[in-house]
């Protein structure tokens, strides 16, 4: 894969190995389904606390599987638009995913509350920076800034965009990315050369 990245005639290897990987990945979902049946099935049989939820999960899994594999109007695939599987996806799966995602708003608020406490000089700098970015990147904050005497002439949004976001923030992120990229090459080399084997359960 490394060689094909630099050598034209071997470019096709990338697609080939990706196809291999996708095939293995697809079949591995059978493993996942078996694990779900095994773990949840045991809980239902033993009537462990909350076993009703396990039952709901297995019933949902079976119904989705049947709809996705078999139920379709003539001339259509079971995964086409307008089928039962599509209905499950649109009206059950997507709203549930959306609901979980929307929890982030509350979690961000609680995490920010803890992170932005001025307990040390560094935390105070973080608090001030966060205050500036949060307030003055919205039209209301910008309007309020321009209403201030003397300093109102100064373009605060440009300062935030160019200096805080484009300068300090981008520099910090890039530093992390540089370090991570070097680490990535090193780990890949160790895995390729067999120096690193602990991910296989060895020492």
């Amino acid at each position: 894969m490394i060689v094909q990245f630099y050598v034209y005639p071997l470019n096709w290897l990338s697609d080939l190995f990706n196809d291999f990987y996708n095939i293995v990945l697809t079949f591995s979902f059978i493993l996942g389904a078996l694990s779900l049946f095994d773990v949840n099935g045991k809980k239902i049989v033993q009537q462990s606390p909350g076993w009703g939820y396990n039952l709901v999960l297995l019933i949902s899994l079976v119904i989705t599987l049947i709809c996705g594999l078999f139920i379709a109007p003539p001339g259509h695939l079971p995964i086409d638009e307008g089928t039962a599987f599509d209905w499950i996806f649109k009206y059950l799966f997507n709203p549930l995913s959306g609901a979980t995602y929307s929890l982030l708003a509350f979690y961000i608020a609680s995490a920010s509350f803890r992170a932005f406490r001025a307990r040390s000089p560094e935390a105070t700098v973080l608090l001030i920076t966060a205050f500036l970015v949060m307030l003055f990147r919205v039209p209301l904050g910008e309007h309020l800034w321009h209403c201030l005497p003397f300093v109102g002439q100064f373009d605060i949004s440009k300062f935030i965009e160019d200096w805080i976001m484009g300068g300090f923030n981008a520099a910090g992120q890039r530093a992390i990315m540089f370090g991570a990229s070097v680490g990535l090459i090193s780990v890949s080399l160790k895995i390729l050369l067999g120096i690193e084997r602990s991910y296989l359960g060895g020492d």
Partner: peptide, 18 residues
Amino acid sequence: VASCDYTLIGEELYAASA
């Protein structure tokens, strides 16, 4: 960083095994 007690940043994750 905000929610956890310790955080391995970027390369530190890759360095962990070694």
